[in-house]
Amino acid sequence: MFALKDLYQEVIVDHNRAPRNFGHLAAPTHRAEGFNPLCGDRLTIELAVDADGVIRELAFDGQGCAISVASASLMTEAVKGRTLAEAEPLFERFHTMLTTAVEVDLLNGDDSLGKLEALAGVRAYPSRVKCATLCWHALRSALHGETGATTE
């Protein structure tokens, strides 16, 4: 049986209670909204990308379940300081972790997802994968110059 504490790990509970990079940027260069029509959750992602394509600052705002808020909070920490070119493959690896049976142990070395691995438990709850990926869909929209994304 899959234990509930594998889903609601301490890191997730902590990031839900005190989300990092929560709010808005003074001068964002990119901005997009994410919407999950299944549960009505909405969030906004704002980025400040410099001339070298590095994500210098980012912030998110909105409301959602613990999984979606913690995921957004962890995402902002994971992509801050990375280039646009690095952010996309990170999402792909994160998505793979949530949707396949690959053990987290296999994702070590260069493929390590760091603190994002706290969300690996979502894999056992297919209906909650969209909660964890909403912020990433919004991030990708923002990076591609779009204004919104839905998880449908």
Binding site: L4, C39, G64, C65, Y125
Partner: peptide, 8 residues
């Protein structure tokens, strides 16, 4: 959040 309630 209601979604977390549902899962728990």
């Amino acid at each position: 959040h209601p979604h977390d309630l549902g899962t728990i």
